[in-house]
Amino acid sequence: MSGHKPCSIVVLRGSPRASGNSDQLADRFCETAIEAHAELHDYALRDLEFSPFGEVADDHQDQLSPALNDIVQADIIVLTTPIYFCNMSGLLKGALDRFFGFLKSDYLTNPEPSILPKGKHLVLLQTQGEGEERYDALLEQYGPGLDKLGLNERHLVRACGVREPGDIQVHPTALQNVEALAKRLTAS
């Protein structure tokens, strides 16, 4: 691998609960990525003070700004969230709203509406208390915005039926899927 730039990953942890199930999925992804010598930028949104209404601009800086700057350079963006009231957590939604700042001012008519370089992968690691028949369409729901950002390479790993911290540990398929995805995306 000498001479190759290491894969760069930004993780935005959307759970308000430290060490919860979605954090544990993120931990598995991060451990696997580190083994592959990836460059990792890991942010727990619960620890940051930020406004969901800011822009990615020099005139608006808060504790989320370094993560947004890292996303511009990243090869892989990993979003983690439990499902709360039928959607991603408010923390993650607030951070995702800031992705609007990655769009050019003429994004509605510009054939290249995003300032983000092409080829990034977006990974959503999602945990939920309910069964797999629900909440499998978050990436589809946010698809139009993600398309405008050029985030066309999207991957979803869900763990269903996990409520209490640690439930994910008896959900080996989700953990295995996260590990396999991290290996595949960081191999180069």
Rank of each mutant, 00 (worst) to 15 (best):
S2K: 01
H4P: 00
H4R: 09
P6Y: 02
I9N: 05
I9S: 04
V10F: 09
V11L: 03
L12F: 05
P16T: 05
R17S: 01
A18I: 05
G20S: 15
D23Y: 12
Q24T: 00
Q24F: 02
L25Y: 03
L25E: 00
R28T: 09
R28K: 10
F29K: 02
E31G: 05
E31V: 05
I34F: 15
I34Q: 02
E35T: 13
A36M: 09
H37T: 14
A38H: 15
A38L: 06
L40N: 04
D42C: 14
Y43L: 15
Y43H: 15
A44W: 15
A44I: 07
L45E: 05
L48A: 10
F53R: 11
V56C: 03
D59K: 14
Q61H: 14
Q61C: 01
Q61M: 08
Q63A: 07
N69Y: 09
D70W: 14
I71K: 06
V72W: 02
V72P: 02
I76N: 04
I77W: 03
V78I: 09
T80N: 11
T81C: 10
P82I: 04
Y84N: 12
C86W: 15
G90D: 14
G90R: 04
L91Q: 14
L92Y: 07
K93E: 12
L96Y: 13
R98C: 10
F99W: 10
G101V: 02
F102D: 03
S105E: 13
L108T: 07
L108N: 11
N110C: 02
P113A: 06
S114F: 00
S114Q: 12
H121C: 11
L122I: 08
L125Q: 10
Q126F: 08
Q128G: 13
G129K: 00
G129I: 01
G129S: 08
E130F: 06
G131K: 03
E132K: 05
L138N: 00
L138F: 00
L139P: 14
Q141H: 00
G143P: 01
G145W: 09
K148C: 05
K148L: 15
G150P: 02
G150I: 01
N152Q: 07
E153S: 15
L156K: 13
L156R: 04
R158D: 08
A159I: 07
G161A: 13
V162T: 15
V162H: 01
R163L: 12
R163T: 10
P165E: 06
G166P: 08
V170R: 14
P172E: 11
L175H: 03
L175Y: 08
Q176L: 10
N177P: 01
E179C: 10
K183A: 11
L185P: 09
L185H: 11
A187H: 15
S188N: 10
